[in-house]
């Protein structure tokens, strides 16, 4: 099946974190996923988690260089959600054998594996950041995540000048790297 240009646009929007595209994808697919989850022993919160996870998987796929989506966004999201929910049920020991499915699905195992690996990485990063404590965490987030300039950061955090802030940032960065690489396996 060839994707129509509309879906291509949506995916491009998603890759660029475009609010409109996210809203559209959300609106078009969420109810379907919610129905799937609710009908299979899930709650509204489960539905939201699973759906957002699926959109993130789609986002990773849309961003990757070797990006090929061979089915409709709807089918892809449905397949991912179904797989994720099966897994979640299994983990909870409530796997009932068969998640009732009436929609067509596509194989998404590889994408999910990749996604899980990424999630693990992010968890490491998050843990490392959280164990830094303030002001290190805020400082690094401001510089690396929010991409603020050193001068601005110095003002925000109350350093007398940018060099002092830079110095502090260096110390924090070293600690973060140490924490991160303690858990992150480069050789993998």
């Amino acid at each position: 099946m060839k994707l129509d240009s509309n879906e291509q646009l949506l995916l491009r929007g998603l890759a660029n974190n475009d609010t409109k595209a996210i809203d559209t994808i959300y609106k078009d697919n969420f109810n379907m996923v919610q129905a799937l989850i609710l009908n299979n022993n899930g709650t509204y919160d489960d539905a939201r988690d699973i759906f957002q996870e699926a959109v993130i998987t789609l986002y990773e796929k849309a961003k990757s260089d070797s990006f090929v989506l061979t089915c409709q966004i709807k089918t892809y999201i449905y397949s991912v959600c179904r797989r994720l929910w099966l897994k979640r049920l299994q983990q909870m020991g409530r796997y009932t054998g068969q998640v009732e499915s009436l929609e067509e699905t596509v194989p998404v195992e590889e994408d999910l594996e990749f996604h899980e690996k990424r999630n693990a990485d992010f968890a490491i990063m998050e843990r490392a950041l959280n164990s830094l404590g303030e002001p290190c965490k805020g400082l690094l987030e401001a510089y690396y995540l929010q991409k603020k300039g050193m001068t601005e950061i110095a003002q925000d955090f109350g350093y007398t000048n940018a060099d002092n802030a830079k110095n502090q940032k260096y110390k924090c960065l070293m600690r973060l790297k140490k924490l991160f690489f303690a858990q992150y396996n480069i050789g993998e």
Binding site: I22, Y26, V55, I56, L140, Y144
Partner: peptide, 14 residues
């Protein structure tokens, strides 16, 4: 850390 930032932003957006 960049990927992590993107990921966080996306989660927030969602």
């Amino acid at each position: 850390i960049e990927e992590y930032a993107f990921h966080r932003d996306l989660k927030h957006a969602l």
